[in-house]
């Protein structure tokens, strides 16, 4: 009868394989080499990602729709979940994902994540203040996301400043600003 690896070692290796952070070594049993190349492992990763995307779609509606509309959903969520040990609870994973997006992506992806983070906080009656500079008119984009019909026409040029606050009726205000007032968002903020 074959010797069995202790459960701790087996589970640590499986975790590494699922998270794609472990490559079986020469000394590892054939089992791990075979799992690492298997379609089964791809499926496990896909199912894990599906669950997480599903939860995110329900939690951060705007951002998820934007990511889908721009073809970034799969790669971005995969990158996020691979990089972090996320909570099982969407109330924690959701804001963490939006924070992560606002810091680790650029342009509209980062802006929309930051906008939604604020909206969620305000809807939960939290004290919240933020000022976001948009390199385009936010309203057609927000409308496009609400209608799930975001298109190139939704992105209309201009520079706008959005103030998000729990003290504003409707949660945010938008003001068009002249080009010299515009502060483009640094890539990693």
């Amino acid at each position: 009868m074959k010797n069995h690896l202790p459960l701790a070692d087996l589970q640590q290796k499986i975790l590494g394989l699922v998270k794609d952070s472990y490559l079986p070594e020469y000394t590892d049993e054939n089992y791990f080499h075979s799992v690492s190349k298997s379609l089964n492992l791809q499926l496990v990763r896909a199912i894990a990602l599906w669950w997480r995307q599903n939860h995110l779609e329900r939690y951060c509606f705007f951002t998820a729709r934007f990511l889908k509309a721009t073809g970034q959903m799969e790669t971005t969520t995969a990158r996020y979940f691979q990089a972090s040990n996320h909570s099982s609870f969407i109330e924690e994973t959701g804001p963490d994902f939006l924070h992560w997006l606002s810091k680790n992506t650029i342009g509209l992806t980062s802006i929309i994540a930051r906008f939604e983070l604020g909206m969620i906080a305000i809807n939960k009656n939290e004290v919240y203040e933020d000022e976001i500079f948009w390199p385009c008119d936010p309203f057609p984009i927000i409308y496009g996301l609400v209608q799930n019909d975001l298109s190139n026409e939704s992105i209309q040029s201009g520079e706008f400043c959005m103030t998000l606050s729990d003290k504003i009726i409707g949660s945010f205000e938008v003001e068009e600003i002249s080009p010299f007032q515009f502060q483009p968002i640094p890539p990693y903020l």
Partner: peptide
């Protein structure tokens, strides 16, 4: 595993 969420359930070795 060690508090890290696999994202799905994995069956156990029957040892």
């Amino acid at each position: 595993v060690e508090g890290i969420n696999l994202g799905t359930m994995v069956t156990l070795p029957r040892t």
